[in-house]
Design a protein around this nucleic acid. Structure first.
Length: 416
RNA sequence: GUGGCUGUAGCUCAGUUGGUUAGAGCGUCGGUUUGUGGUACCGGAUGUCGGGGGUUCAAAUCCCCUCAGCCACCCCA
């Protein structure tokens, strides 16, 4: 029972799980390429400042969840906890800030949290960033990619799109003040947790789950009322756009962001079921991000989705899995069978399995066990005729196939 | 970081108020005679009962500690 164990909060991907995982990423890549987003792959290792400066020191990710360490050269490094800041860094270091950058990425992220349903210490994200266009049309374009992606995976209907605006820095600041004052007035009725949140990040009180807090929050000032002219018209443009595009959405004034760099549009695709980690895809616009890590004052909009959370929504992927076995009746012919397999030219989605051990009966049994559609058997009788026997396992029918015609035979059987 | 539940063969689990060599189903392996699988029948193997300590004549069962998994809070994809 004492086995070697995996690191807490990590997973081995094998069997159906990796098939599903790859399926999701393949769909994502295909879609992004067709919409002229280019792939970017940044290192898993980054300097710690990339995240401490951009996400905010008080954010949970920075204050307690990052895997940070000093390497042998005394460098302060982290395993990246998220993608956006790393991509901003890559745009700056590669001197392409003046370009219009449309990127997509996928890969592992690391956060040292207590694992639970939908939450891992090493998890995977797919995401896009549209950088350099301070135009609400790019927000809409990014949401369209999300819509199409979720539709491709056939999970859009299980999700609800919630949107909100955080406004620009000025209106956000004004709102923050007003909210703080309001909560201060009701301080004695707040839960202990929210009293704590009030100090660190008052916005967080808005999505408290405590019954009393919810009552108080219902009468709190509305962020929409604090948006200045610019912010308000951006939000209106966004909503008009969604209407025109027939995208279903809910305005959720309690939707806030945990990371400091967000402004204006914020959106989330959440599941309707009442599970705890119900955010599948989340994103928004960011303005201060580039400046905060020493770049030019440019802005962007993007989103990230948790691959594992997507997987939780689609446990019923049926993939075609055609297999065919080859084996001989005696050892002398094994190498001939291998040679036949090596010379085959057939569609790669058909899996060829060579059975190299066991007696005749066992070979049949093995072929059956791995779920083969049928099997090719090479015996001395067949070898003399330069033919091979094909047995279909579902019907039990056997027939002889010319050795030179195996590819044709298989292509006809499986791909016509 | 806090809390709840769980931990018995490869897997899913049973194990009565503590009481002899710890069980079932599935899987696995072998067999039902030599070039025919899947179905059926027969048979075999496998467990430091998560780990450590304690109580007891006796612990899978009771107590303490610890580890792991799941779930929830916090927070987030």
């Amino acid at each position: 029972m004492q086995k070697v164990k995996k690191v807490k909060g990590t997973r081995d991907l094998l069997g159906n799980e990796i098939i599903l995982h790859n399926h999701i990423i393949a769909k994502f890549q295909k879609l992004c390429n067709s919409l002229n987003f280019s792939q970017i792959s940044t290192p898993i290792l980054e300097y710690i400042q990339i995240f401490t400066k951009s996400l905010g020191l008080s954010s949970d990710i920075v204050s307690k969840e990052m895997y940070n360490f000093e390497d042998q050269g005394k460098e302060q490094l982290v395993l990246r906890p998220e993608g956006t800041a790393a991509i901003a860094r890559a745009i700056i270091t590669n001197s392409i800030e003046n370009d219009l950058n449309k990127f997509f990425y996928h890969g592992p992220m690391f956060r040292r949290e207590r694992p639970q349903s939908g939450r891992l210490r090493q998890f995977h994200q797919v995401g896009i960033e549209y950088v350099g266009a301070n135009n609400i049309l790019s927000d809409l374009e990014v949401i369209i990619v999300a819509e199409e992606f979720l539709k491709d995976l056939k999970i859009r209907k299980k999700l609800v799109l919630e949107i909100n605006s955080l406004g620009n820095e000025i209106s956000r600041k004004k709102y923050n003040e007003s909210l703080k004052n309001y909560l201060q007035e009701n301080f004695s009725h707040l839960s202990d947790l929210s009293k704590e949140r009030l100090k660190k990040n008052p916005l967080r009180v808005l999505d408290s789950k405590e019954e009393n807090d919810i009552k108080i929050v219902q009468n709190s000032p509305n962020i929409i009322d604090f948006l200045d002219y610019e912010s308000k018209s951006m939000f209106e443009d966004l909503i008009n756009g969604l209407e025109k595009l027939s995208i279903n959405y809910n305005i959720n004034r309690y939707l806030v962001r945990g990371l400091d760099y967000y402004n204006h549009s914020a959106f989330e695709y959440v599941t309707e079921e009442k599970k705890s980690q119900n955010t599948v895809l989340a994103g928004g616009r960011y303005n201060q991000l580039f400046a905060s890590i020493g770049g030019k004052d440019i802005s962007g909009v993007g989103w990230a989705a948790g691959v594992e959370r997507i997987e939780m929504q689609m446990n019923d992927l049926k993939t075609r899995d055609d297999k065919v076995c080859f084996f001989s009746t005696n050892k002398e012919l094994d190498l001939e069978v291998l040679k036949i397999i090596a010379d085959l030219k057939i569609n790669s989605s058909l899996k060829i399995h060579f059975i190299n051990s066991g007696n005749f009966k066992k070979k049949f049994s093995k072929a059956n066990k791995i779920g083969a559609t049928g099997s090719f058997i090479l015996g001395e009788d067949e070898w003399k005729l330069k033919k091979i026997t094909w047995k279909d396992f579902s019907t039990g029918v056997q027939e002889l196939v010319e050795l030179g015609n195996i590819d044709k035979f298989l292509n006809k059987k499986f791909f016509e």
